[in-house]
Amino acid sequence: MVMKQKPDEFPDNWVRQALSQLPDVPPPGSSFNSERLWKELSPELQQVPPRRLVGLLWWVAAACLSGLTLGWFWLYQSTNEQTVVATHASRNKADASVVSPYTPISANEIARSKVAEKERPVPSFRLQEHAKERRKGESIPKVIEPIEAVVHMPEVTTVAETPSISEQLLGLPESNVAISSPKRRFKVVHENELRAEEETRPKLYPTENFVRIGTGGRTESDESRPALTLPLTHKPNQ
């Protein structure tokens, strides 16, 4: 195309029209190959666009967060319920201990408990192959196989179950009580529960006319009654 044929056209428009008449081929001397570019482009088109991927990741993160929140909430709720139940149970136990009368422990029971103490299983470890090997005088292998440990531990061990001097003094024959099952001799009771128990126990003598000596605190029930408190350090003749 020769530009001399269009001398009156506006220059920008003239250039624009000239360029619009360019053929749909790469410029002369160009190494552009559309097929090669398509081969590079097509795998990129198959991939998930980054924006969608980011959106997907946001959704996954939100789902995880909500799941964690719900899980934590559920766990918190169940823990609360368990705490409430446990509190109720302990209160009931406390009430029962206050109401129930004190039961004296007989000598037979003490003896039985002593035997049971002796029968308490000691943790025993079974060494499967090592003992035999040592006896034979063979060298100890470097790699030790896992040892099966059988440990029999009592379910509940209290301070009251430890043997005392009084039990030793009894000196009962062991054969008589070997079959007996372990029984608790003492009951572990909280100090406050003991006080409550003592208060509820019937009194053998009237205490209305007693005089409290000392500076100790008074209970609520005592405060209603008139009382005289004499400190221990008080000396009337001085």
């Binding site: 360019l22 749909d24 790469p26 410029p27 552009f32 559309s34 398509w38 482009l41 097509s42 088109l45």
Partner: peptide
């Protein structure tokens, strides 16, 4: 279709 569209406009848009 993507390939056809690409072929149709690739050279022109390369310019």
């Amino acid at each position: 279709a993507q390939k056809r569209l690409f072929d149709q406009y690739a050279n022109r848009l390369f310019r």
